[in-house]
């Protein structure tokens, strides 16, 4: 991992953290939803400051370049997050449907009285 790559990682982490905090400040992001991004940034910062971790783990897994391990970690985290997001969307779909049905049924009940 070159020094430039480490600086890039670090900057990416700070930028994403700043984005998250700004949106909490503007009351647009729930604190419980920000947790992932804070951990995500923390992992990037740790990898940028201690690249030895990436070297050791990539050796263990037989990955040729530690940079690839960093990519792998980022991709894995993002895939996991996307899946969680899908779960959220599904549950929101269901709730929205239930709400609309309940409102429609209530309206029918009040009109036919």
């Amino acid at each position: 991992m070159t020094i430039w790559f480490r600086i890039l990682l670090f900057l990416a982490a700070i930028l994403s953290l700043q984005l998250v905090l700004r949106n909490i400040r503007k009351s647009k992001l729930l604190i419980s939803d920000s947790l992932f991004w804070i951990f995500f940034s923390a992992i990037l910062v740790i990898l940028a400051i201690f690249p030895q971790i990436a070297y050791v783990v990539s050796d263990l897994l037989g990955i040729q370049s530690p940079v690839n391990l960093v990519y792998l970690v980022i991709i894995a985290l993002l895939i996991w997050r996307v899946f969680k997001l899908y779960l959220r969307v599904s549950s929101m779909d269901t709730k929205l449907k239930e709400l609309a049905q309940r409102i429609a049924l209530n309206e029918k009940a009040t009109h036919s009285k």
């Binding site: 905090l21 909490i24 400040r25 503007k26 009351s27 604190i31 419980s32 920000s34 947790l35 804070i38």
Partner: peptide, 16 residues
């Protein structure tokens, strides 16, 4: 615990 603690010690600094 993670949410509450991070919210108090870290996010709290930046909240309006």
């Amino acid at each position: 615990m993670a949410t509450i603690c991070i919210s108090i010690v870290f996010i709290g600094w930046f909240r309006q």
